[in-house]
């Protein structure tokens, strides 16, 4: 079986249980899509899966934003803008796949992996540190 695209790591943990749970579920969804990409799923299937991922991430970000605001997170504004940029990016990926009518599984997979882990390494890590420092 194809190895997972993204492995859950302990340092992904933010410290908000409901957010961490959704992070795991999102990683699972992206890994599932990755396995489909590798075996050459149809365009409709790929865009549909990306649409589902977009909806899931939208609501995940919404929840994370609610928690950040409730905690008066200092860097909320920047983090929120980054969320919106990321959401736009998935839609851009969907547009690209739809418009070109084809995709390169490796390119698309790595784009997704970068997209996901990039956010983790920077913004979520900052939130994690901020939350940890509060206690």
């Amino acid at each position: 079986m194809e190895p997972a695209l993204i492995e859950w790591r302990e340092d992904f943990r933010i410290g908000l249980p409901e957010v961490d749970q959704e992070h795991r579920e999102l990683i699972d969804a992206i890994n599932r899509l990755h396995r489909e990409l590798v075996v050459g799923a149809s365009i409709g299937r790929v865009t549909g899966a990306l649409g589902d991922i977009h909806a899931a991430i939208s609501s995940h970000f919404a929840l994370e934003e609610k928690d950040m605001q409730a905690l008066h997170y200092a860097e909320f504004e920047a983090h929120k803008r980054e969320h919106e940029r990321l959401l736009d990016e998935i839609l851009d990926i969907i547009d690209d796949v739809t418009a070109s009518g084809s995709y390169d599984p490796q390119v698309l997979s790595s784009r997704l992996a970068d997209w996901f882990t990039g956010h983790f390494r920077t913004f979520d890590a900052r939130l994690h540190r901020w939350l940890a420092a509060r206690h």
């Binding site: 549909g48 899966a49 649409g51 609501s59």
Partner: peptide, 17 residues
């Protein structure tokens, strides 16, 4: 306002939150 309310979802009879 619901973040899950998007027509790009795959299920033909998707439901929003």
């Amino acid at each position: 306002s619901c973040p899950t309310a998007t027509p790009m979802r795959s299920a033909p009879d998707f439901v929003a939150g």
